[in-house]
């Protein structure tokens, strides 16, 4: 039935084959390239600067000792803890919490990879911005003027589909078609697949700052706004992609714990 409908649409000429954008003239591209912002370096969320070998962030430990919970606003704020969830959203959040203990994951996914315990890099070209982290997670943001794919092309994925544009030195990104983030990672928010994510990223001095707005009437009573900032941390000299293949998170009935040895003797 579904294929019959697609065939009918094709015959009616309403389905166009996917096509690559026209490549830019080399000289013109070089000129455009020269005008683009340049964000070199390995960027980590601001409050995770100086993370120790044990995975602890000094700023967070200090804030905890002070009893200061304001750091939550930046530290993993994309998890939606501050969002206004509607009834369905609250039910989904409760479900995520109830099943989070000891749950393993395969990565951070979007949006959490923008706020996670891994440095990210930005490769900026005239037609595409690539954002990647050391877990092999990659976002492709098309800045070649193409529109968001049609609703008929709805293809939810962990990292979604993104189109972007430059407003001066600010990269404005719209992302749609993201699978419910909490399905992939238990620390992520349970937005619906119809959620729309807007990011506005720009350099402010040595800080990279991103304003985020998530609109998801299916789960949120109002759009969720938050901000994430990143700094360049010391010690990173290359991006090494490493599989997320040894998640030994387990649960002992009261707390998470370390799963017994997972390697062969």
């Amino acid at each position: 039935m579904r294929w019959a409908a697609i065939a009918a649409l094709a015959l009616a000429g309403t389905i166009a084959p996917a096509s690559a954008q026209e490549p830019m003239d080399q000289t013109a591209r070089t000129q455009v390239f020269a005008e683009l912002p340049y964000w070199p370096g390995y960027w980590v969320s601001e409050y995770t600067i100086g993370t120790t070998i044990g995975g602890a962030a000094p700023a967070l430990a200090e804030a905890r000792e002070r009893g200061d919970t304001s750091f939550f606003r930046n530290f993993m704020s994309l998890n939606g803890g501050g969002a206004s969830w509607n009834e369905e959203g609250r039910a989904r959040m409760a479900e995520v919490r109830a099943t989070a203990q000891g749950r393993k994951a395969d990565g951070w996914g979007f949006p959490m990879m923008m706020n996670a315990a891994t440095p990210i890099v930005f490769a900026i070209t005239p037609e595409l911005v690539i954002i990647t982290n050391s877990y092999g997670e990659t976002r492709h943001i098309y800045t070649d003027g193409r529109p968001m794919p049609d609703e008929l092309d709805m293809w939810p994925t962990v990292y979604g589909t993104s189109v972007g544009r430059w407003e001066g030195d600010t990269l404005v990104i719209e992302t749609r078609m993201v699978t419910t983030p909490s399905d992939f990672f238990h620390g992520a928010p349970p937005y619906s697949e119809d959620a729309v994510y807007e990011e506005r990223l720009r350099l402010e001095g040595d800080r990279l700052v991103g304003d985020y707005t998530v609109t998801d009437p299916a789960r949120l009573s109002e759009p969720f706004h938050t901000q994430v900032s990143w700094l360049r941390d010391e010690g990173f000299d290359r991006m090494i992609q490493i599989d997320w293949d040894n998640d030994r998170t387990s649960f002992d009935g009261e707390f998470n714990t370390i799963e017994a040895l997972a390697v062969e003797d």
């Binding site: 969320s45 995770t48 993370t51 044990g54 995975g55 602890a56 962030a57 967070l60 430990a61 905890r64 919970t69 939550f72 530290f75 993993m76 998890n79 803890g81 995520v96 919490r97 989070a100 203990q101 994951a105 951070w108 996670a116 315990a117 990672f185 238990h186 620390g187 998640d247 998170t249 707390f255 998470n256 714990t257 370390i258």
Partner: peptide, 26 residues
């Protein structure tokens, strides 16, 4: 508000000190 934050942190949705992918409450 504090109770909500504590509850969320306890469920591992927030990791208040560790920046690991799980709570450090263990």
């Amino acid at each position: 508000k504090f109770a909500i934050v504590a509850a969320v942190a306890g469920f591992g949705l927030l990791a208040p000190v560790s920046q690991a992918h799980h709570s450090n409450a263990m």
